[in-house]
Structures are given as structure tokens and as C-alpha cells.
Design a protein around this nucleic acid. Sequence first.
DNA 1: ACAGACAGTTCAAGTAGTTGAGCATCCCTC
DNA 2: GAGGGATGCTCAACTACTTGAACTGTCTGT
Lengths: 358, 358
Amino acid sequence: MSGSSAPRLKDVAQAANVSMSAASRILRGERDRFGEETCQRVLDAARQLGWRRNLLVNGMQTGRTKMIGVMIPPYDSFWVDVLAGIHLVLAGADYLPITVWVGDCQEMPHFEKDDDQGLGQISRLLDRRVDGLILWPSFAVAYYKHFRELLERRVPVVVVDHEFSEDQIADSIETDEQRCAKAVAQHLVSLGHKNIACLSSRETAWQAWAVRRRESFEQALADHPEVKIKSWRLNPWGTDGLEIAEEILRQEPRPTAVFCVTDHEALYIYEAAAKLGLRIPEDLSVVGFADLDFAASLRPPLTTMRQRPKDIGRRAAQLILDRLDGDFADHPPTTIRVGADLIVRGSTAQQSLIKARD
Amino acid sequence: MSGSSAPRLKDVAQAANVSMSAASRILRGERDRFGEETCQRVLDAARQLGWRRNLLVNGMQTGRTKMIGVMIPPYDSFWVDVLAGIHLVLAGADYLPITVWVGDCQEMPHFEKDDDQGLGQISRLLDRRVDGLILWPSFAVAYYKHFRELLERRVPVVVVDHEFSEDQIADSIETDEQRCAKAVAQHLVSLGHKNIACLSSRETAWQAWAVRRRESFEQALADHPEVKIKSWRLNPWGTDGLEIAEEILRQEPRPTAVFCVTDHEALYIYEAAAKLGLRIPEDLSVVGFADLDFAASLRPPLTTMRQRPKDIGRRAAQLILDRLDGDFADHPPTTIRVGADLIVRGSTAQQSLIKARD
DNA sequence: ACAGACAGTTCAAGTAGTTGAGCATCCCTC
DNA sequence: GAGGGATGCTCAACTACTTGAACTGTCTGT
């Protein structure tokens, strides 16, 4: 057991008494050029010695490592599902995703702040010659700095979940915010709400999606001039969720419904409502966004927009593969907008209910 | 932009007008053997051309790819933290973890059932010549089938979170179940509880930890003969959580405290309690395990054993690195037991409270 | 008997570097 | 003017395998 290490093709060839080239060809399936008995000998020898292909060598020779770098934030259940979609598609094509995290935004508690970290991580991926990159737009900085290089190396990039920037330089898969906003607005308006609040997250530069989500919602309500809408947001550190939530619920007149750009913010509203003795949904309707794993087990269960993260992941992976296989290699960058579903649960109700109790 | 691809060392050498070997040495930091002006020329050329080291080649030559395979279940917040610890340590050593999922147990909704999948995934890792493997014991099957091979290839394996098997064949990092069980038992007993239930999870073969957790708890209570303990478990599909929870709470006499082997099971108890009109903690104390992300936001917040997942991940990664660096290479397999902390929140209370109200 | 065809196999040059050993200068010493 | 030792750089072999081209031997057809 001491001298042994990974068996080489040379060993297999020797054991089968053929040349390395013959062994190589037979093991790669080019079998019809050889005698049946020879093939068997080689195959047996390979099995016996436990030989396996060395994708490092393949990578060197073909320039394809069959690895895709994935840079996304430390996961909540949304990102786990995105990853699941990515894994599923890539594994099917015998590709392997390599996932890295970057900690240069405060939402990520797992890493010490380090501005060069994004660069370091992307370097670690490129040094290993990944064939493509799937990334979350918050890594814009790291991405921009490497952009020229990625382009020159012809490494396809797909951005997931939220539009990357105005100038379409990479493919992008995102949730269709406008349709979502319309669906939420429609739902609340049809329930008779006329005074609605919107609670956004922190709206830091790397949380542009929060801005877009809030603005989409405001726009969607602009079609209903009879409805009053006021928006709020967390401070840049995201530390004042509960206070803001209370502030919203202390307004005169009090909003009868709150749309939160994320289920996380909805938690603050729940907490503030409990504190102020407001009942959900009798006194207050609440809508979240994302349908994170805890949304259904809140009391009452949270009405929320369920995105399709697995779908997003799947399409991102597929898009990368398409770009790599050349069919799609030279198309201009595309944006795919994925739908979402309004899951109506117990946290929203007719506004008339409130009137009846008043 | 069309003909360009990754720049080669040859290009850099040519641009700097030196031999490849000189360029190689200078770029790897062996600078004192060369003239300062030459070094500058090479460095400048490399920067200009955007050259970066090719770890595939390094991997071929040294047999070290600086990649560690990680096989863990689709993540809840516990596993996310484990991963965080792993990433942190490995990134510090310029290693990259490659995480794969396997779907051959039902807890994993993300993949279709496929018994060979574990094998396929482990193959995908070995084909890329990962230097080591961190894995979750549920992958025992895949692991056992590859065990001889891993041994012969001298790929170090570390098993995380729960003991792998009786015969110590790999390093193992686990939560110290016995100490945890003692802490929970101590907490409940000191609150005056005399009739305690334990709600285990499914106890399928690949959830051996549930068995161990339950048994440790039963043993811990054996030191308190005045306390009655009865255990329950979910069915093998995990579908009857709510029913079992109700059954527990309908016992005569009703247990005054329930220990759940996971926060997930505690959710069922909460739900059943709400359904039966029981108040937590006044009528019923509940203790969970893991301190998953939702535990603190339940109402009342859940008392639970907080494991140290980040620590577990960190130590697993460190152990792999130690084995690779040779210092530790020839030690027999070790087990590291990581502590955990009882987080007392609002779901547990003095049993006397209950008496006072009865 | 000899060309042509074909199966079965080998040669050698790639892939992108790394590295131990060695060589050419130049300066200084004796 | 030879010897010694830095200094600064290059040669060539090596990593593990792939692949286009070529070569050998046997069989067939004429």
C-alpha cells in the first residue's frame, strides 16, 4: 500500500501488453479498429488496476476542463435551489460546478471583509481553467476588473437573478420583476387595499435588485391612482428592520397592506405587528417575496411571490453549455426572464374585513 | 479578439526575450537568481499579456490539484455554515473546495433518485484528481465502494458531522452527542420536568445520527430515575410529523417537555401545540437541536442546542490539509468531537409554572 | 507472383509548463 | 594567466496522455 499511487495508462498498457496509444484508443471507445481479444485484455487490465481517466490531461489538451465556476452569495433556500438547478443540468452533461463565495458585502457573515477576495476567488477559478462562469451581479466589481480577460479567454459568463447592468455584456437570467410587481399589486388592489406600504431592503449598490423590485411595485401601482403607496427602506447596515417596521405601522392613517421586497423583511413586519397588537391578516395584509423556507411555517403563513430558483439555475447552466458547444457561441448576449408565482396564504385578506371590525 | 485565447508562458518568454525556464522561474518567485532588469521584463510581459499560472499543469506535474471534493447534503443553514468553515480554511491555503450533492436519500428533494449517482459524483471528483475528500456519512455506500481505491490513491478522507462507522477507517469530525444530550437533560431536569418525550426524526440507515441523538438523550436521562422518558419517531418517509406530534401531546399524562432531535421536528410540536390549544412554554417546554436559521424567529423563540458548524467545517478542512502536508500523514484515523451550546430561549420554562396555573 | 486493401499497431509530436543540471561570462585572487 | 566562485541564464527530460500519420503483416484478387 505504500508505493502505490494512481495507476497510469502506461501501467495498463504494459499489463495488457500493448502500446500506450492502443490502450488510449481502446479505453476511449475507439474499439472497432482493434481485435476483440485485445480490447478485452486492455479493459480488464484497466479495471483490475483501477485506472481512471485523468481530466487534468484532457483539460490541458483540449482546453476544456468540464468545470464551471459559480459565484453566488452564501445561501438561503433560494440560492440552494438555484444551485440545485445548476448541478442538475451540469451533472447531466458530465460537467462539474465549482462554487465559491465572496464576502465583500455585509450580508455575508461568513467571511471577513476583504475587497480583494472577489478577485482572489475568480482567480482561483481561472487558474484552474474553468470553461465558464455563472455569477451573481453583486460580484460586479470582481467581474468588471476581469471582464477584458474573460472576453479574451472566451470564457462565457452568465449572470443570474438580476440584471447585471444596462450595457448588456453578458447573458443574464432574471426573475421578471415587472410581472411580479403587477401580480402583487393586482392581488392587493383586488382585495380592496387603498393604502399600501412597501418595505425595501437595504438599497446598497450591490443590492440593486431591491431598488428594482421596489420601483417596479411603485410603477405597477401607478396604474391605480386611487391607491396610496409609500415606500421605506432599511439603513445601509440592515440593522433597523424592526424600527422601520414599527414606524410603518404607526403611520396615520395606518397602511392596510405591506409589500416586502423579501420574506426577510416580512419577518420584521410580523414582529412589529405582534408588538403593536395588530392581527395579520385582519388588521394588516403582508406580502413577501421569494417564498423562503420559513414562509409557509410563519403564523399566519405568508403570502409571497415564489420565484423559480431551480429553473433559474437550470437555464443558467444550459445557457453556458449552449455557448460552449458552439451552437450558440456567437449570438449576442441574451436576457431570459423567468416567471414567478403568487402564493396566496393566510397573511393577506379583503380590506372589507378590516372595515367590518372597525 | 477572435484569434486570442489564453496566453502561454512561451508567449511571455518570447515577449521578454528569455527562455521559458527563466520565465517560469521568475514568475514562480525564484527571482534572486536573475538580473533585476530581466525580472522586470518578464513580469511586465506577463502582466501585459494577462498570463496566469495554469494549475492543470501543476496538477499533472506534482499530483496536487489544490482541490478538495466535498460531498454533503443539499443545505439547510447548518450545512451552509459547515461549508463556510471549509471554504474559509481552504481558501486561506489557496485550495478550492468542489462541492457536489447526491440525491440517493429521500431527504433531498433536488435530485431524482438514482443509486449510482453517488458513485458518479465521486468519480467526477476523482477524475479531476481532487487531493482529498470531505464527506457526509450518508454517502457511506458510495464511499465504501470506492474505499480501496481511495486508500490506494492515498486520498485523505474526512467524514463530517456524524461518526461514520464502528471501524475507524477515516478521520471524523462530529458533534459531541453525549455532552449535548447531557446538557439538554440537565436543563430540563433542573426546570423540574419529570415526564419528558423525545421526538426523533426518521431513523433510516442513512440517518444514524438521529438514532444516536435519541439514544444519547435516553442514556443521559437514565441518570435521573425519577424522570419518565418516552421516545417517538417519524415514519420512514418523514410524512407523519404532525400526527406524531399530536399523538405525543395527547398522552395521559401529557409530557411537560419534548426534546426534538432537530429544529425541524420542533416545528411539528409547535404546530400540534397550537392546534390543541397548548401554550409554549407555559403548558409545554420544547427543545430543538441545531439552531437552524428559523429557530430564533419562532414564537416563542426555540430553546435549542446550537452546534458549531463553522467550526466543524474549519476543522475538517484543516485536518485534510494536515494529512496532505505530511506532518500528519501517517497518523491513524482520528475522531474530533466538537462541542455545542445550549441556547436557552423562550420555549422552555420551569415546570412549577405549569403547576401554578393548573 | 505481386499489387492493393485492410486490420492492427506504433511513432512521434503535440498540450503547458517545471526543474535538476549545466554552461558561459565576468570579476577577483594568487 | 590559471583557478575559483558568483552571476545569469538555458537545455533537456519529465508530467500523463492524445492523435494524425505511418508502418507491418496478412489476406485477397488477378
